[in-house]
């Protein structure tokens, strides 16, 4: 390597610069691990920090008082909300990028997603998060179709389809969209619990590390069910306590988190 470019280090430098430029060009089309990490970062200005994923109400009504309760809560949440959101994110990823935007298909997906969220408080919280994700993604990976998505519903898209669309615009794979949805279903509530209960952050970090294989498993299962299946047949799974508590939480005058 570098023999034609001259003696010594100059050849290596030229080659290094070439590699760096090729890497930069690849990154413009997105799709790398750094892009995935960026979308998974809770500090992304997409509004996720305002939501506790139901943990605030569960702390208030006494369902979560310590680490063991949190573990059981996160497991339940991952296998219900996480699994459904992963499937919806994959379906949105699958629709993304088609030009012109298939309006009817997006409306159908929005209606299918809304039908999986019987709680009006959770639908409102999800659309608030969907707007936040879309706002950030449109700036980060501007594509015309992503802008059109904002008009899919007067209150904006629901969060899981918005996440799937953002992943597509960022050049990520369908499996990444599923992983993001499952990760959001667990990490957001976990860190909210640290704030609400003053739990030891290292213990919660351990808990999340233990849960990571399950997060991967739920995302992989959503992916194995396949992109491109009839959206009406996507999974629908919920928790009666989560739905009831979301309505109670929304009616409270004093709260730290929006949901």
């Amino acid at each position: 390597m570098g023999s034609a470019a001259g003696p010594g280090n100059s050849g290596r430098e030229a080659s290094w610069a070439g590699d760096a430029n090729r890497a930069l060009n690849r990154d413009k089309s997105g799709g790398g691990k750094a892009t995935l990490l960026l979308l998974a970062d809770g500090r992304l200005p997409a509004g996720g920090h305002a939501h506790s994923g139901g943990v605030e109400e569960a702390v208030t009504d006494g369902r979560i008082s310590g680490l063991d309760d949190l573990r059981r809560y996160l497991e339940g949440r991952l296998w219900t909300t996480g699994a459904v959101d992963a499937a919806l994110a994959i379906a949105a990823w699958d629709l993304g990028d088609a030009v012109p935007l298939p309006d009817a298909a997006w409306s159908r997906l929005d209606a299918e997603a809304a039908a999986r969220m019987p709680s009006p408080a959770l639908r409102a919280a999800s659309r608030a998060q969907g707007r936040g994700i879309l706002r950030a993604a449109r700036r980060m990976w501007p594509t015309p179709w992503l802008g059109d998505l904002a008009g899919i519903h007067p209150d904006g898209p629901l969060s899981a389809p918005a996440l799937g669309a953002a992943a597509r615009a960022a050049g990520l794979e369908a499996g990444d969209a599923a992983l993001l949805a499952c990760q959001n279903a667990t990490t957001g509530p976990a860190w909210a619990a640290v704030r609400l209960l003053g739990l030891d952050p290292f213990s919660v970090a351990c808990l999340l590390a233990e849960l990571a294989p399950s997060v991967e498993a739920v995302a992989a299962e959503a992916l194995s069910q396949g992109a491109g299946i009839d959206v009406a047949q996507l999974p629908a799974l919920g928790g009666p306590m989560t739905d009831v508590a979301a309505e109670v939480h929304a009616s409270r005058e004093v709260r730290l988190f929006a949901s």
């Binding site: 979560i64 573990r71 059981r72 339940g76 219900t80 159908r108 039908a115 009406a232």
Partner: peptide
Amino acid sequence: GRPLLRHGLAVGAPGWDGPAVLDGH
């Protein structure tokens, strides 16, 4: 012809008896 409700409950799935789903009920 429009989706109105897609609802599901899986008793026996991981976390089903935890505070997100039924918590002993």
